[in-house]
Design a protein around this nucleic acid. Structure first.
Lengths: 128, 128
DNA sequence: ATGAAACCTCATCCTACTAGAGGGTCAAGA
DNA sequence: TCTTGACCCTCTAGTAGGATGAGGTTTCAT
């Protein structure tokens, strides 16, 4: 598999695949005679794991830790639990923040209906 | 007012105040004999406006536009309305994303209860 | 006079990519 | 055989919104 195909299959961009390699998240694949990267199934699995983790909002550092854990199937699950718990707490905090934000802005009303800035509710709300 | 005091009053960090000046969001204040920045009320108002806008999640580019608008009280309010509307849409999108995320992760259950990675629900969920 | 706290500039780092320059490889069609 | 176009390569620099640190000055209280 060349990089274009693995990118398509994982849903990553080509540049991102190379970036993950440079970051050490995936092992460097072998190269073809023309210096093209050639991927196999294990790369596909690993890149899919990363993509899915990123989609769920884990940071690359968290992904790194999760990959390290998944590389050792007989290791303890506790750390994975911990990472997930921290992440859920983070999501809940962001949700609370955004909800508060949303309701604060909602108070501005649907539209301002003023014609000039001097009477604009949006600008006014930001000024005090 | 020196930078430390204006930082305290606005809730910004000192470095952030200087950063906003470098970005052209606030005019450069006059300097004391010892080259210290000396702020007045107008800086305080402007930096507070920025802080409040940032707290509400506007990007610096949006803040720039809002400041430009508020500098012209006789100008049209329509653009401010537009910026706010775009921002609200963005917040709603993020809320939807985070909510979806949260419910997906919630399916993993409270804790994994497995002891080894091979049986860990977290790792398993990320693998497929 | 001295020591601490506050200030200064300038440079570098952070996340997680993204974009672009400038060039090489490869298969198919004319 | 030549060429065209799609694909690939490396390397550098840029993005938002600051944070951090080095190395040096100023101010103020004792």
């Amino acid at each position: 598999m060349k990089i274009g195909e693995i990118a398509k299959r994982t849903g990553l961009k080509i540049e991102t695949v190379r970036f993950y390699e440079a970051e050490g998240l995936v092992p460097a694949p072998i190269r073809s005679g023309g210096n093209y990267r050639l991927y196999d199934r294990s790369h596909l699995d690993r890149l899919s794991f990363i993509k899915r983790s990123r989609d769920l909002g884990f940071t690359l550092d968290q992904v790194r830790a999760l990959l390290r854990l998944s590389d050792d199937p007989r290791g303890s699950c506790a750390e994975a639990d911990q990472i997930a718990a921290v992440h859920i707490a983070e999501i809940d905090r962001k949700l609370a923040d955004l909800t508060a934000l949303r309701s604060e802005i909602a108070q501005w009303g649907d539209t301002c209906n003023a014609s000039i800035v001097a009477e604009c509710k949006v600008i006014d709300a930001l000024s005090h």
